[in-house]
Write a protein that binds this DNA or RNA. Structure first.
Lengths: 221, 221
DNA sequence: TAGTAATCGCCACTGAGTGGCATATTACTA
DNA sequence: TAGTAATATGCCACTCAGTGGCGATTACTA
């Protein structure tokens, strides 16, 4: 039946101290088992007690790794946003800022590894069929905007409260992402056969959204 | 101490059937008492049982009026978004679409009555100091985007999945709102003396954000 | 005034999330 | 290598938002 059994002893850096390795394994086990259970039975139909029982961890421990039930399901997205912010922070910002934001997003997306892609596809599939996860995902993108704005403020040495454009750029970048992601969903069938080129298709959709920004402003009837 | 006592028998259309009048009064009493309690003790420090007890209504009934604890605190915002969508639906869309979206927003905002403004200011004050409400408010704005897109699709007879620009326009309109609202917050001190011109200031901030959109796209270092 | 439909109250229940403290495990140090 | 400090985990009881079901009220209608 719902025998999920996820091997936890995978891909953990040997050089790390034992404690850190264990933490990584627990985290991975929680994510993998959660994704498997959620996909099998639906996000709402799985209780935390169920998940926690499967992984053989206490509920208390779960909340030391994730802040909410939603977080464990969308961990892959969180990783992407962390990478995005990181990429922007270590980029030099010259020329058109929106172009830089766009390039950083694409770069972060392309920098994620194969295993991330697998989890990310599962996450997006769940988001697509779970309103609560959709909300959580959207909120994450809004929070990412703020982080981008903070990053821009530091790097450009400007104040977003004096120059609204900085904040607007955050809206535009993540807005393009949201539009692109939406269009991507309808163009992809989430079948169990892991389709190749999913990430490339997503990138394309997001780029198309960025491309359409100038045209949307001038759109007339 | 926390004796909130909100008079419920206020401003209810006499021509309405008794049942409808009662429902309106219950709704108003819930909103007013909620705002008073939340502002006095903080959103998180007030339990629904407390609120429900104060209004002398069962918790079950509360959830027949509002879908969540957050909803009763942000009811004024919801009213604004309903008005916005309504305004857009009954506007003819000619010329630049973003300009139409902007005009409809401003028009909806200006069309709200004095009592709404009072409640809206209370709501925004709560949002400003309550993360959970901030999240809920942001989600509402995202959902409003979708409603705008739906409205545009119908009125323009286009498909947002074929033309990304439609969706982007939703992002832009509500993005400008979010930016404007943020800048408005810092420019206003929410003191108990209800400052005049708050709404006008908000409108100004939002308009400034709209104005800054073209410039944000071309912003360079 | 009887009948019908909407609304409400009550009550028991689920499930996410938290606080506190005892216990176990890892890391550091003499 | 023994002992100790630091950190991670388990356990348990608890709060509180939100739901389902059903019987009791209350308002409309003929």
């Amino acid at each position: 039946m719902s025998h999920v059994t996820v091997d936890a002893k995978v891909h953990v850096d040997r050089t790390l101290p034992l404690r850190e390795r264990k933490k990584l394994r627990t985290r991975q086990a929680l994510i993998e088992t959660a994704l498997a259970l959620f996909i099998e039975k639906g996000f709402d139909a799985v209780t935390l007690d169920e998940l926690v029982d499967e992984v053989e961890v206490s509920k208390r421990t779960f909340f030391r790794y994730f802040t909410s039930k939603e977080e464990v399901a969308t961990a892959a997205e969180t990783e992407l946003w962390d990478a995005y912010v990181e990429t922007l922070l270590s980029a030099d910002i010259t020329g058109n800022v929106l172009v830089v934001l766009r390039a950083a997003l694409v770069s972060a997306l392309e920098g994620m590894d194969e295993d991330w892609e697998r989890r990310f596809l599962a996450t997006r599939s769940l988001i697509g069929r779970t309103p609560r996860l959709r909300d959580h995902s959207n909120l994450s993108s809004l929070k990412t905007q703020e982080r981008l704005v903070d990053a821009l403020e530091k790097k450009l040495n400007v104040d977003s409260r004096e120059d609204v454009r900085i904040r607007l750029l955050g809206e535009l970048a993540l807005g393009a992402w949201r539009c692109g992601a939406k269009n991507w969903v309808r163009s992809v069938r989430f079948t169990s056969r892991g389709g190749r080129g999913n990430r490339a298709a997503l990138t394309r959709c997001v780029e198309e959204a960025f491309d359409a920004i100038p045209g949307s402003i001038t759109l007339s009837t």
